[in-house]
Computed example of a mutant assay.
Amino acid sequence: MAKQAFYSKKYLFRSNINKKIRKNFIRTYIWSIALYGCETWTLTKQDMSRLEAFEMWCWRRMERISWTERVTNEEVLNRVGTKRQLLQNIENRIGRMIGHLIRHDDFIKNIVEGKVEGKRGRGRPRYSYIKQIKEKVKVVTYKEVQELALDRCKWKELQRQELGS
């Protein structure tokens, strides 16, 4: 859907408007469509590589760089004057969302923490949302994630450290 939105407004992104304005258009118009609901995504390595590829696709289209020109991603980022930000944006949204859910006693918190009754299916268990959060904040148990998130100042500082590294 985000590519379709890009193509519908490509005259804006490829025009002679200031590059800074075009970048802001892409971040607000295209990325908002692409990242809709990303707070609840469980990202695998394949998903991350696809999102990075989509980000580079947007920048290449904005700069009118064909895939046959053999321009490296680093060179494209230098031309645009930015760094990779899409995955950091997603991680920041996930961190804010899980912190909010843990601090509030809501029905959604019960869903996130709850277990589904019944038999588990065959095969390898899926990569869970809670496991992703535990790996991100570098703790072993969900109880430790809860303790961190209940102190809002510590949780925000942890999120800032994640973005800085």
Rank of each mutant, 00 (worst) to 15 (best):
K10Y: 11
I65K: 07
N73K: 00
T28C: 15
E74G: 00
V140L: 11
L148H: 00
F13N: 01
I65D: 09
I30P: 05
I94N: 00
S165T: 10
R96L: 08
R60I: 08
R103Q: 02
N24C: 08
N89W: 08
S128M: 13
S32K: 12
G121C: 13
A2L: 02
I21A: 10
D106T: 12
E147K: 00
D151N: 04
T42L: 10
N73I: 01
H104P: 02
I108V: 15
C38I: 04
K131E: 15
R124T: 12
E75H: 14
A34D: 02
N110M: 06
K19C: 08
D151K: 00
D106M: 09
R14D: 08
D151A: 01
W31I: 06
C58D: 01
E74D: 06
W41D: 08
G114N: 01
G37L: 07
F25I: 13
K131L: 14
M56E: 07
L158I: 02
I17Y: 03
M48Y: 01
C58E: 05
L77M: 13
S49A: 01
V140R: 10
W57C: 08
V80Y: 03
F107L: 11
G164S: 02
W41V: 10
K10S: 11
N110D: 09
N78T: 10
D105T: 08
G37A: 09
V137E: 03
A149L: 03
F54Y: 10
Y127T: 14
L158P: 04
E91H: 09
M62R: 01
T82M: 05
I102L: 05
V139A: 08
K134H: 06
A5T: 12
C38T: 03
R61M: 08
T72S: 14
N73V: 01
C38W: 02
T72L: 06
K138T: 06
K45W: 05
Q132N: 10
R70P: 11
I30T: 06
E162L: 01
T82Y: 04
K23W: 01
A2K: 04
R96W: 07
R93Y: 07
Q146E: 02
I133L: 05
W59S: 03
E75Q: 14
L148I: 00
Q161L: 01
L77Q: 06
K45N: 07
E69N: 11
V139H: 08
I108K: 11
N24T: 11
K109H: 11
H104Q: 05
L150I: 01
G118Q: 13
N89H: 13
L101Y: 07
Q85H: 09
G99P: 02
E63W: 08
A53S: 15
Y129F: 15
